[in-house]
């Protein structure tokens, strides 16, 4: 994912923020680097300040964000909006877990917490309770349609946003579901990691 960030930033000419948590920051895992991951933006001569000699052009390029004329600024904002909408169309990234059966609950969780939830889901399955998980890989664009569709499944009674935060994602999940299902939050902060048992208890409290 970190390596994908660079081509994405080039494609959209937009900063890409990589979010992690304390556990990822202090952990080591072997990774494999792909051979070649270099992308060149195709129309960079139109905007990059690479020097007029480099571009063999008499036209200078200007990178700026200051638009003092309201109409000009409005046009610029519309351009940015179109870009964000294109991201929503093309860059929604998430992973589904245990979507096979008639799940009673849906967990939305990301990062390290989603691994804990995976264990919890596996154990609940052994006990005969089907729970699905949707793991957003990109927080923007947030996979709203996917969360909405998953929550609307007939059998699904409740949605849980389980996070290692005080509910930073809760509003996104809530908004995606638009009141169709009750949404609950469970989480811990400060470096404490909720255990699978806690997640299981939390789910069992609501879903019978």
């Amino acid at each position: 994912m970190v390596m994908e960030a660079f081509p994405l930033a080039e494609k959209y000419r937009n900063p890409v923020m990589i979010l992690g948590d304390g556990l990822i920051g202090q952990m080591m895992e072997p990774v494999e680097f792909p051979e070649h991951l270099k992308t060149e933006p195709s129309n960079k001569d139109d905007w990059a300040t690479s020097g007029m000699d480099t571009r063999k052009s008499n036209q200078r390029n200007l990178v700026k964000t200051l638009y003092l004329d309201p109409a000009e600024l409005n046009a610029h904002n519309l351009k940015l909006k179109a870009k964000y909408e294109q991201m929503e169309r093309e860059e929604m990234r998430f992973e589904k877990y245990n979507f096979g059966g008639d799940y009673k609950a849906l967990i939305v969780s990301y990062g390290t917490m989603s691994r804990v939830c995976r264990t919890a889901i596996d154990r609940l399955k052994e006990d005969g309770l089907e729970v699905a998980m949707l793991r957003p890989q990109f927080l923007f664009p947030f996979p709203r349609p996917a969360v909405f569709d998953a929550a609307r499944k007939e059998s699904c009674q409740a949605v849980f946003s389980i996070e290692m935060s005080m509910g930073q994602m809760l509003e996104d999940v809530d908004r995606s579901i638009a009141g169709k299902r009750p949404v609950y939050w469970y989480g811990k902060c400060g470096g404490e990691v909720p255990t699978p048992e806690e997640v299981m208890d939390e789910v069992r409290k609501i879903v019978k």
Binding site: T49, S50, G51, M52, R60, N61, L62, V63, K64, T65, L66
Partner: peptide, 12 residues
């Protein structure tokens, strides 16, 4: 606004 007064590449 100095980029308006020069005729080469500029960034803000």
């Amino acid at each position: 606004l100095m980029y308006n007064y020069f005729t080469f590449d500029f960034q803000e």
